[in-house]
């Protein structure tokens, strides 16, 4: 285990999440992609803490912020999905075209 292997794992998770966020039409699936990307930040933050400056708690604080970000992202994502579904029965990104032209 080295810093590089941890960062490669984070890169792979980020790339998979990016693919999901870009390619999926369903709003919930896009949120899954975003969560995978935030998970990459968690892995990379923990690796930087351990392999670069373990004496300082900054890396751990980054992980905590990323975990919180994940919870906020999910709560707001589902709230927006509920609101947009209530108003216009939209559950796919391609159907939400109110602001188009």
């Amino acid at each position: 285990m080295t810093l590089q292997t941890f960062l490669l794992l984070a890169c792979a998770l980020l790339a998979i999440g990016l693919y999901g966020a870009l390619s999926q039409q369903s709003i919930v699936m896009i949120m899954m992609g975003l969560e995978l990307m935030v998970n990459a930040v968690i892995v990379a933050g923990a690796a930087f803490w351990y392999y670069v400056s373990p004496a300082r708690p900054d890396g751990q604080v980054v992980v905590l912020v990323a975990v919180t970000l994940m919870a906020v992202e999910m709560a707001m994502g589902f709230a927006v999905q509920t609101a947009i579904f209530r108003s216009s029965e939209v559950d796919m990104t391609d159907m939400a075209t109110e602001l188009k032209d």
Binding site: Q4, L7, L8, L14, L18, Y19, P54, A55
Partner: peptide, 30 residues
């Protein structure tokens, strides 16, 4: 397009991870 973008992102990041001269470890965990 999504596949190309995400694969490209992974390749760029992975090359960066392997080529960057990462700093030495300072200190030990508490």
């Amino acid at each position: 397009g999504s596949l190309a973008i995400s694969t490209g992102t992974f390749v760029v990041l992975a090359v960066g991870v392997l080529l960057v001269d990462w700093p030495q470890r300072q200190g030990v965990p508490p």
